[in-house]
């Protein structure tokens, strides 16, 4: 697995896509931290970038990379290696390269332009980005295994991103609207935990002064996520989001015909 991981990591780090992704984060983070009047506003803007761009790039870059290397996978899998080692190596290579892009693109501007008061907020922001990368790169690899057709693979990737970024929230709002006569705090909490992008958003928002604007919902979220139970439930949820696609990936990888 080590050799596959190293090859994927270095191959991806040399790709134009990874360099562009790092530069994008570097430029946007530097600009927002340097030009913004309020540090909280800068973090809120960065939050939107992390929440929307990280999953999208993880999905698309993952899909492009795995489809590009599909024929090469045939050669590697004909060698005396376990399939699990191959797929795990690929997953770790892809996610590590994306995480490094995120850490470099965000980390350097944070050190240069960030202030001491922002350490916690920026830390949660980067941690969320890392978690989202781990979740969505697993999904990307899974989608390529299930779809021989590249166009379909891309289509499903964009649909998955749209679902988690937009459609899920829309359905959530509709449910809140329809059932507004009932106590919905627990439902709202459960619905938030079930979407990794929403979970990351809430975790970041609760670190910011802006969370005061959330009113009663914010108070109940702060109450839940501030408790040990809330912490472990959200951690468990994000771990499930990482490990369930990974498990499905290894299972599918073992039975897949190349």
């Amino acid at each position: 697995m080590g050799s596959i991981f190293k090859y994927c990591l270095f191959d991806l780090m040399r790709s134009k896509w990874a360099i562009t992704y790092t530069l994008f984060y570097f430029v946007s983070c530097s600009a927002l931290l340097y030009f913004s009047n309020s540090p909280s506003n800068a973090v809120a803007s960065l939050m939107n970038i992390v929440l929307f761009i990280t999953p999208l790039v993880s999905l698309l870059l993952g899909i492009i990379y795995f489809y590009q290397n599909r024929d090469f996978a045939e050669l590697l899998l004909s060698q005396p290696i376990k399939r699990n080692a191959y797929f795990l190596g690929n997953y770790l290579g892809l996610s590590t390269s994306l995480v490094l892009s995120l850490l470099v693109g965000f980390g350097i501007p944070c050190i240069v332009f960030g202030t001491y008061e922002l350490i916690e907020e920026l830390g949660v922001l980067i941690l969320s980005g890392v978690m989202l990368t781990l979740v969505f790169s697993g999904m990307a690899l899974l989608l390529t295994l299930y779809n021989e057709n590249r166009i379909k693979g891309f289509g499903y990737a964009i649909l998955a991103w749209l679902f988690f970024a937009v459609i899920y929230d829309g359905l959530f709002l509709v449910a809140l609207f329809w059932f507004n006569d009932y106590p919905l705090e627990k439902f709202a909490l459960a619905a938030t935990i079930l979407n990794p992008m929403d979970l990351s958003r809430v975790m970041i928002l609760l670190q910011l002064d802006l969370s005061a604007l959330l009113g009663f919902t914010g108070a109940s979220f702060r109450h839940f996520f501030g408790s040990y139970t809330g912490f472990f439930v959200s951690l468990g949820s994000i771990m499930l989001w990482i490990f369930v696609p990974l498990w499905a990936l290894l299972k599918k990888g073992n039975s897949k015909d190349f």
């Binding site: 090859y7 790709s15 590009q68 290397n69 024929d71 090469f72 045939e74 050669l75 004909s78």
Partner: peptide
């Protein structure tokens, strides 16, 4: 094994 299509990682 020599696969039919000689496609390798480009970088």
């Amino acid at each position: 094994y020599v696969p039919q299509i000689a496609r390798f990682p480009e970088n």
